[in-house]
Design a protein around this nucleic acid. Structure first.
Length: 558
RNA sequence: UGGGGCAUGGUGCAAUGGCAGCACACCAGACUUUGGAUCUGUGGAUCUUGGUUCGAAUCCAGGUGCCCCAGCCA
């Protein structure tokens, strides 16, 4: 977890400076999502930085929905966004705002700019506006409507509001500089006509403010001191400042930091939406998704997600965080907190030939070796068990420590068993092992000091609970999925094996009534959580993350 | 001579003129009733050229590379 509650980064330094030199005497930040999609791990970084910095400096933070484009937004998203932020552990109390609440004020300020001769109504078509804007290397040209009189502008703008004109027929533009090297300053559009029902204001408006015009003013209305945002808005800052200065209203400070990228995933709302809509995943909360709802469903502890964000840091470099760091954070958390259990994913039947017929013993097992307070439980042992198919090899390769004909291994918390006979079906598949056990090794200790190389997990057949286990793998095959050759897209990099559903799994009986969301370590395999799809007596597990596997590594080298 | 931003091990982040450090990853070993965890150890970085300075990752100048901007999206 975070050792140092006060973050040390360039934004914190800037805040401290502002406090010290009197630019501000308190700190108020805001997170401004547009409700047009679900939050992902990249947003989590923005939220933790934005809200975390406010907390660290004794300030408050607002949640403000940037809902200025009715055609893309929906209440479904505002609900999910709130749930995700709460999950992250932040409480914005009563400071929940919507840019749409400011539409009237924004409109009045627009009239003010018209009156000042700083804004005008333009009749150019969208195509013409683009033409007049010029290019990256050539300056733009003034619109023929640029020098309309204040009265005419005012009249036209009011009639825009009064629904007199169709979509796309006119816009309100700021009058700045069509020759500016910064294209954002080439008379940016402030209002466009959109005859469209807004999810909150309904049909009250048919003109909607653009981001650049709405954002800074919304910050100002709320008294935000530090408006932290994506590096992409850095070149918008002159415009952000321009509106505030021209309007002569409270002037927050915008500071930009670089967004988070993560290897083997894609963090773009557009792409994530595509995955959902094309049915390539089961929904926004599919456990393979980098969305917060997906991670939550998968079973990632929120503490681990936060820890990851802290470790990734804050800077302006374009950076790509290694997914293995996230996985490390998850494992580190779960190693401390998850109860250990035994579950067999791909069962292979084992008959203990010398075990007393019909006998069942209750053996004691440790719940979490990292946490003595977690105590112990009992697991039933009998003459008919399941072990993992992978834990038996008829012809064991070098360094394979598990079961093989004639070899003795330990069953965890159980007995030493020795494989005496291999039973196969007509196709030659191993279907059953016949073994003997050493009654003197109860609990897994040999009184004669005899060693075995392997310890296997197992489940007693009669008491086993049937379970479905969903094994997840990276959604993408390449570390930078969007980096594709001509003619291909990130969709070509999708991993066809990102989900494998195992249906005949056998888990120990203590798991029969595990609650949704509970997390366990299946010993020697990985961490798993109970999926909401679980039914009473029929648990469904999600693989959260596998245990580190050095045997796998050894094999991979060959 | 469009404008803006960024360059530190494989990855991410520190070092704010004074011994380039931390984490993840990687590799080797110890230990182990989870091939988990834990512990120990190895290797590996300041984009480049010049300048200032006793001393430069840090300051200055030039160069190079990468990212962003031409929505009536945010």
């Amino acid at each position: 977890m975070t050792e140092n509650p006060v973050p040390s980064n360039f934004i914190q330094e800037a805040i401290l400076d502002d406090l010290k030199n009197g630019r501000f005497d308190h700190v108020l930040t805001r997170f401004p999502p547009e409700p047009n999609g679900y939050l992902h791990i990249g947003h989590a970084k923005a939220i933790c930085i934005t809200f975390g910095l406010a907390e660290a400096n004794g300030g408050k933070y607002n949640l403000r929905f940037d809902d200025t484009n009715p055609v893309k937004e929906d209440v479904e998203y505002v609900e999910s966004i709130k749930e995700d932020i709460r999950w992250l552990g932040f409480d914005w109390e009563d400071r929940e705002f919507f840019a749409s609440d400011y539409f009237e004020q924004l409109y009045q300020w627009a009239e003010k700019l018209i009156l000042k001769g700083k804004a005008y109504v333009d009749d150019l078509s969208p195509d013409e506006i683009r033409e007049y804007r010029g290019t990256l290397t050539e300056p733009g040209r003034n619109s023929p409507y640029r020098d309309r009189s204040v009265d005419e502008n005012l009249d036209l703008f009011r009639r825009m509001r009064a629904r007199e004109f169709p979509n796309g027929s006119r816009v309100l533009r700021a009058k700045i500089d069509m020759a500016s090297g910064n294209i954002n300053l080439r008379d940016p559009v402030m209002y466009r006509i959109l005859h469209s029902t807004h999810h909150r204001t309904g049909d009250q408006w048919c003109i909607y403010p653009m981001y650049d015009y709405a954002h800074g003013q919304s910050d100002s209305i709320e008294g935000v001191t530090h408006s932290l945002c994506d590096i992409a808005y850095e070149i918008h800052r002159p415009l952000y400042d321009w509106f505030l200065d021209e309007l002569e209203i409270f002037h927050p400070r915008q500071i930009e930091f670089s967004r988070l990228n993560v290897t083997y995933t894609i963090l773009s709302k557009r792409f994530l939406k595509q995955l959902v809509e094309k049915g390539l995943v089961l929904g926004w909360d599919d456990p393979r998704m980098p969305t917060l709802s997906g991670m939550r469903r998968r079973g990632y502890p929120v503490e681990a997600v936060r820890d990851f964000i802290d470790r990734v840091g804050v800077a302006k470099n374009e950076s790509v965080a290694d997914i293995s760091l996230l996985e490390h954070c998850v494992r580190e958390n779960l190693n401390r907190t998850a109860l250990r259990v035994m579950g067999v994913l791909n069962p292979l039947k084992v008959i203990i030939t010398n075990y007393p017929e019909g006998q069942v013993e209750q053996l004691e097992a440790i719940n979490n070796p990292e946490d003595p307070a977690a105590g112990t439980r009992t697991v039933p042992f009998s003459g008919e068990l399941y072990i993992e198919q992978e834990d038996f090899r008829e012809v064991p390769p070098p360094k394979y420590f598990r079961l093989a004909p004639g070899r003795e291994v330990r069953l965890r918390y159980g007995y030493f068993i020795k494989c005496e006979e291999v039973v196969k079906d007509e196709q030659g598949n191993v279907v059953e092992l016949r073994c003997t056990y050493d009654p003197a090794t109860r609990g897994g200790y040999a009184p004669d000091g005899r060693k075995v190389q392997g310890t296997l997990h197992w489940v007693s057949a009669a008491q086993a609970v049937d379970a479905e286990v969903r094994m997840y793998n990276r959604l993408f095959l390449t570390s930078d999925p969007d980096n594709v050759e001509e003619g291909k897209t990130y969709l070509d990099n999708i991993n066809p094996d990102s989900l494998k559903v195992l249906s005949g799994c056998k888990v120990e009986p203590s798991l029969v009534n595990a609650v949704i969301g509970a997390r366990f370590q299946f010993e020697r395999q990985g961490y798993f959580s109970i999926d909401p799809d679980s039914q009473p007596g029929k648990p469904v597990f999600n693989l959260i993350v596998e245990l580190r596997d050095t045997w796998n590594k050894i094999q991979g080298k060959k």
